[in-house]
Design a protein around this nucleic acid. Sequence first.
DNA 1: GCCGTTTTCGGCCCGACTGTTTTCAGTCG
Length: 580
Amino acid sequence: MENKRISEIFEEMSNIIGIEKTSTSNFESRAYKRAALTIGTLQQDISDIYKQGGIKALMELPGIGKGLAEKISEYLTTGHIKEYDELKKKYPIDFTSLLSIEGIGPKKAIELYEKLGVTDIPTLKDALEKHKLKDLQGFGEKSESEIAKGVTLAESNKGRILLSEGLPEAEKIISILKGSNLVKEAVIAGSTRRMRETLGDLDILALSDNKTEVMDLFSKMADVTSIIVKGPTKTTVALNIGTTCDLRVIDPDSFGAALQYFTGSRDHNIKVRTIAVRKGYKLNEYGLFGRSDQLISKLNEKDIYEKLGMSYIPPEMRENRGEIELAEKGQIPDLLELKDIKGDLHTHTKETDGINTMEQMADYAMRKGYEYIATTNHTKSLKVAHGMDDKQFEEYFSKVDELNDRLKGKLTILKGAEVDILKDGSLDLLDKTLESMDCVVAAVHSSTNMTEEQMTSRIVKAIGSNQVNVLAHPTGRLINEREPYPVNLPKVAEACADMRTMLEINASPQRLDLNDTNILLTSKYPVIYSVNTDAHSTIHMDFMRYGVGTARRGWLTKERVANSLPLNKLREILKKQKNV
DNA sequence: GCCGTTTTCGGCCCGACTGTTTTCAGTCG
């Protein structure tokens, strides 16, 4: 996969071109940056696109024209881009790592190289130790110490944090602000509001007549480790959870526009603003402005989209993946909501690697208002989790029967297992045992070092057994820790559709598997999904909101999600599947 | 360098904040 390397090359070229002072270099730089983003986030292998359609196919990608398509072609055929090599000869700088330092942009990076020979982090640290920066033109005592702080921060930086780390923190900050009586309103914006699986920072907007006091309160919160910028409208602080948080205090007239603007995504906003211009408006964070530049005040987000001829777009969809075109046609789907969820089909107890008893899990599920919960412990091959064998399941289920009797239908516990899909595609329990279950969840946990073809046929074979109700965490990835195993998801989705096997959207925050793009990919097939938490304790059941957020990012309605159904309807799906 | 309902030339988002300035440049989002 050459996507990443080509994206990096264009990113570097963007930086170098951007510092040159010609009339168009700024725009040229932006063009390279845009192309870098396109290629860096591309879902297909760019060399496949080139092989199949040549330069012409490359030019169909957004932000790629003739010039850049030819450079991509040059790279794919020769392994080099001549212009890039020449620029690198002139500036042998590791831009990627230097620009990751807070306070260093392309201009300062080049100044540091030309005056001090700084090319990367080690040479920068060397120059910092010798206090050489403060005497440079445009630098000073302050910028030297800020850059030194930036280096320390970058070295301790964990990168993007998980949604499950950022969202609760943002909610905590909102409640601090609201509890102060200094703000009339405080809301979460940015990627947190869009429920992205990882977050680069937190964004919060507030309405207040006491700007200075609010910023003081915000910058003095217990979780703040340092203040990065502080002004009356915008303050940025570093938080002890390893990320930064922006607070913006907004004028009431602009609140809707600001919320739209700061929710993003950037690509979504660029497209929306283009449409605004086409319709004779101007849209920015301060509002929607008419032809003579007058502010159309007091608009909420919905009003803004409607003025622009679109229906309201839920934040989770705002990624410029076709949602704007849908909104213009008034075809935004009615997305799944947390309140639609009637139960959880993937949970564990202390019989294997969970920490709570079935009674405790059932009690918590009832408090959440669920109708049902499937108990799905691991099977014998998964030794690390103390997986159970056929006999142990039989004994366990008799206890579940007793508990169901005691619950008198207030909650129904569905008997199940998270059965291992073995290397050859067979399942880790006897057919007889699987047939005694209400809800069989199947998953790959071992031998993930296979080719895509082998893994796909392994999973398709397991589904073909006609014993599997749910395919759990279909790609096996762990965010920031483990790559997904290679698998052909369209083929898996076809098999699932044939056998009425649900694809899982695993809501565990390290998994979120399927993720949004894979949901969009597989939902083209007539497959149904279930959103499950894989809870290993009672409180893990609260992860459901991350799964629902992911389902919404994949544009799913409740009609596509089986555990939004009441128990009797769900049972039809669970049963039907066995009679295909 | 890209792109097109103002289309093959001439736009392309721009404001907040900070530090080093003495009116502005660089960075960030």
